[in-house]
Design a protein around this nucleic acid. Structure first.
Length: 907
RNA sequence: GGGCGCGUAGCUCAGUCGGUCAGAGCGCACGGUUCACAUCCGUGAGGUCACAAGUUCAAGUCUUGUCGCGCCCACCA
């Protein structure tokens, strides 16, 4: 192992370590014994077309954190990786490529197109997983899956056949969201509504008997598809018209005037045109009143022959043209500005048209009810809990799920038409079975033709937690690793994906797919804006990694926010966390460099391991400073375990950060320099504690920042082996599979006492700083410490070093008289005098002490009042006692300050 | 229309079971070549915890209301 460089070199380290881990098989559950309990996470499969973004970085950070911790805890940790075939996205990519070559998918045909798509997948599909590796994802790549691979296709077909058999899949002509550019249906979830300025058009609907009715619409072109007018049954203005006949403008088609209380008399004119073929609400009204349905639109959103003279026109051109024609015909009234809620395709953003077409649907209601129950009963926990409301709201209002897509890239619907008749079909697992079934039903020599459509991509990912483990086959993996444990993803795909996995699992596995759903928020830019290419505020994770290292990015994502809330990513924070990695490295560097200040011969007899661990044996070997840091460490371990058990990873991470930097590095390591200087058993013990605390902290941090912790840990282990000072290196070859820390022995009284040292040192430093004493100057001090005198005396050298006191002239006694021209420092009942020769200005010192005194008096007054209030009786005794103790300290401090002030005042 | 979140230091955010002087990082000011680290160390300034009322011995934390910002669901032509 080379000498540790001064600064941690993440670029040099990260990729090498990753390969080393993977080569050793530590990402696989088989790294643990066969009887180890499993801990499983199925990855949210990123799109094969995907470029790594911060959302990926976020989920990798969180899931890898959980997986690494579980692995260290001894679980057979399995993180199943994979990618999603992303029907529309991938198809668009390939089409783009074809366009560049001057051809198109229609031109080359389905088969050739699929070949191209697979080639595309082979070529680019590995990019995203390569990038996940770069984030440190400790996934079991030997189990990697693809939502369109053969096994998953079997699962998809099985699921389809079973759902169909159960009557939960049906085919029908319904109004669906039609994406004209993509030429496919999309599900309700794939439609986003955006508020945009537009118009409300008022016009006259002629009546057959003469006269007219005023009507308003935002989409005039749909007039051509109207099959009724509707008014509210109680609307006095229009009651006489109910049952009469109106004439569609321009087309002069006869349509009835009906009454329906869906109509809001206060909106528009109170008379509503009904277009069942192009509006979801009108579709329902149409069904209710048995109205005919006129479809005026082609699949590319041009108008068809039902639109009469407008046939062939694009929908928006038709809108304009029709309005102009109506103006000419004197049928228009006015046009008002009106904010519209425009349905747009989530992918591509084009305006989606409600259009009637024949599609396959899943009746999700029975599964939705089971899923509701799973969460309500607590079998599935959602973190953060507030998403339970969102979950319930969606599932209670579940609508049929349109699963067919008029695309080519995806799972072909396992339905075969018999002898060219789309009304006669068989549903089967594969073509061979389809033939067998069809022959049985329709005789020999049947001709079969598979349904041309493919399934919604989410249909295959809905099966992900068990299909990746081999279902529908009864594999060993499925038996061992299903159900999985935690499903972690962004809240934005709670419905798309998470809910549907729960549904299919409950149906096909008769079990929940995971016991916990952990939802993270969006990663936004530092000002809280959504990252977008148009704003140009996209932060590329790979660039951040190149600049600051993977660990810095991961730690920032993990500690920068709270579950379910969006996180604003700032590079300043990432830089700060890069510094943290460097801090860790340098603490280790210090320890490693100091190992050979001792030898094996310095080792005290007795078991130090037991002393820092569970038993009381030999604890006399430890100084109070040692016991303080060990207590801090063990408190940390306990609280980290509690927090992580509660999925409060950010808070746990911040605790570790604070401990490592503010307790360990800033105080213990500094104090340790003194103890190391004392040599012999004292130095040896100090080395022991140093490496123990570092080792434990590295383990705690490993799930957060795997690279620097492994690199550092390896350095430490190597150095321990080389130094041969009687401290055994760890049993495990790597921190990635090292045992997770458990809290050891605590010394609460000692630790509390030692905190007084900290306070005293801080107070002395503050006073020095106030008097502009050069940091290099060692100052004289007299410390009156009362009962704490023996304790402070034992810390003498540490105190001298930390507060930069003149060791020769340091006096510690229960009580001391102040020297002349001394600054006074009080910490509770401890008082320290610093005779800062020539620097003390009596007037200034008086002023300083006076203001100290005043603030102490304020506190005393506050506490006296508090303790005289009902608080003293009603609050729990320990709380009250704490306040009493504080009051006592303040009183002592006041005493000191007052006396001192008196003596400064010339008699 | 229904639901949810947020509002704490100049900025970005923590704050667990309500517990008594409100925290961090960055930024700012002052001082530092202390032999792990200037990616560092020390000291400091900076707060009406959005506002109002309530519950409580005790409220940043719980309840209600108000204001402001954001999001989700539904989709009034």
């Amino acid at each position: 192992m080379p000498e540790m460089p001064k600064a941690y070199d993440f670029a040099e380290t990260e990729e090498q370590l990753y390969e080393w881990w993977e080569e050793n098989g530590w990402f696989r559950p088989e790294a643990r014994p066969e009887d180890a309990p499993p801990f499983v996470i199925a990855i949210p499969p990123p799109n094969v077309t995907g470029e790594l973004h911060m959302g990926h970085a976020m989920f990798v950070a969180l899931e890898d954190l959980m997986i690494r911790r579980a692995r260290m805890q001894g679980f057979a940790a399995l993180w199943i990786p994979g990618t999603d075939h992303a029907g529309i996205a991938t198809q668009l990519q390939v089409e783009k490529q074809l366009r560049a070559e001057g051809t198109s998918r229609r031109e080359i045909g389905r088969e050739a197109f699929l070949e191209r798509s697979w080639a595309w997948k082979e070529k680019y599909g590995g990019y995203i997983t390569q990038q996940l590796r770069r984030l440190g994802a400790s996934a079991d790549w030997s189990r990697e899956r693809f939502t369109l691979d053969e096994g998953l296709n079997r699962a998809v077909n099985e699921a389809f056949v079973r759902l169909h058999r159960m009557g939960l899949i049906y085919r029908g002509e319904y109004l669906v969201n039609w994406s004209p550019g993509l030429q496919t249906a999309v599900s309700d979830l794939e439609v986003e509504y955006s508020e945009e300025p537009g118009f409300l058009y008022y016009f006259k609907y002629p009546l057959q008997e003469g006269g007219d009715v005023p009507v308003a619409t935002t989409r005039p072109e749909t007039i051509l598809g109207d099959t009724a007018l509707a008014v509210h049954p109680d609307d006095e203005r229009y009651q006489h018209l109910i049952g009469k006949t109106a004439l569609v403008p321009i087309l002069e088609r006869e349509i009835p005037i009906i009454a329906d209380d869906y109509v809001d008399p206060t909106f528009g004119t109170g008379a509503l045109k009904i277009t069942p073929g192009h509006d979801p609400n009108d579709f329902e009204i149409g069904q209710k009143h048995d109205l005919p349905l006129v479809n005026i639109m082609n699949r590319d959103a041009t108008l068809n022959e039902n639109a009469g003279p407008y046939a062939g026109l694009d929908r928006f051109k038709a809108r304009k043209q029709l309005w102009e024609d109506m103006e000419d015909a004197g049928l228009t009234l006015r046009r008002e500005e009106h904010t519209l809620n425009i349905p747009r395709s989530q992918r591509g953003g084009e305006i989606v048209e409600p259009l009637v077409s024949r599609q396959w649907f899943v009746d999700a209601e029975p599964m939705a009810n089971m899923s509701l129950e799973a969460v309500r009963s607590g079998r599935i926990q959602i973190v953060p809990e507030r998403f339970v409301r969102v979950w319930e709201n969606w599932l209670e209002n579940i609508r049929p799920w349109c699963i067919s897509r008029q695309l080519w890239w995806g799972h072909r619907i396992p339905v075969w038409y018999v002898n060219g008749d789309p009304e006669t079909y068989v549903v089967a697992h594969d073509e061979q079975i389809a033939y067998l079934a069809a022959e049985k039903m329709f005789g020999e020599d049947v001709q079969l033709e598979q349904d041309p459509d493919v399934l919604d991509t989410w249909f295959s990912s809905a099966l992900w937690p068990f299909s990746t483990l081999g279902w529908p086959q009864d594999t060993e993996d499925l038996r061992r690793f299903f159900p999985t444990d935690v499903l972690e993803t962004g809240y934005d795909i709670l419905f798309f994906w998470v809910a549907r996995m729960v549904m299919t699992s409950l149906l096909f596995q008769n079990d929940i797919p995971f016991h916990t759903i952990y939802l993270h928020g969006l990663v936004r830019d530092e000002r809280g804006r959504k990252m977008s290419k148009t704003i140009g505020n996209v932060v590329d994770p790979l660039q951040v990694i190149a600049d600051y290292g993977t660990d810095a990015l991961r730690f920032t994502l993990l500690t920068g926010g709270t579950p379910g809330n969006d996180l604003n990513l700032s590079l300043d924070k990432v830089a700060g966390n890069r510094n943290f990695a460097n801090k860790i490295w340098n603490v280790a560097r210090f320890i490693v460099h100091n190992l050979d200040t001792v030898t094996a011969a310095d080792a005290p007899t007795g078991s130090l391991e037991a002393a820092v661990g569970q038993r009381e044996a030999d604890e006399g070997l430890l100084t109070d400073t040692d016991r303080w840091i060990l207590t801090q460490l063990n408190d940390l371990i306990a609280s980290v375990n509690r927090l992580m058990g509660n999925y409060q990873f950010g808070e746990a991470g911040r605790h570790i950060y604070d401990f490592l930097w503010s307790d360990f590095a800033d105080w213990y390591v500094e104090a340790a320099k003194v103890q190391l200087g004392q040599g012999g058993a004292r130095a040896w013990t100090t080395v022991y504690v140093l490496q123990h605390v570092l080792d434990q902290a590295l383990r705690l941090l490993h799930p957060y920042i795997p690279f620097v912790t492994e690199a550092t840990w390896q350095q430490l282990q190597y150095a321990l082996r080389e130094a041969a000072i009687g401290i055994p290196p760890a049993d495990e070859p790597a921190v990635i599979i090292a045992a997770w820390p458990q809290p050891g022995r605590r010394y609460p009284e000692v630790a509390a006492r030692w905190e007084r040292v900290r306070e005293l040192v801080r107070a002395i430093r503050a006073t020095r700083s106030e008097y502009n004493v050069e940091p290099a100057t060692y100052v004289e001090a007299r410390i009156g410490a009362g009962d704490l005198t023996p304790f402070l005396e034992a810390q003498r050298d540490v105190l001298v070093f930390l507060a930069r006191l003149d060791s020769e002239r340091l006096q510690i006694a229960p009580q001391l008289s102040p020297p002349e021209n001394a600054a006074t420092v009080t910490v509770g009942d401890i008082v320290a005098y610093l005779p800062l020769a020539g620097m003390i200005d009596i007037a200034r010192e008086q002023e300083r002490l006076q203001s100290e005194l005043e603030s102490v008096e304020e506190q005393i007054e506050r506490l006296e009042k508090l303790l005289a209030s009902p608080f003293a009786e009603k609050a729990p005794a320990p709380i009250v006692q704490k306040e009493r103790d504080k009051l006592e300290q303040y009183r002592a401090e006041k005493e000191e300050l007052a006396t001192r002030l008196d003596s400064l005042t010339p008699a």
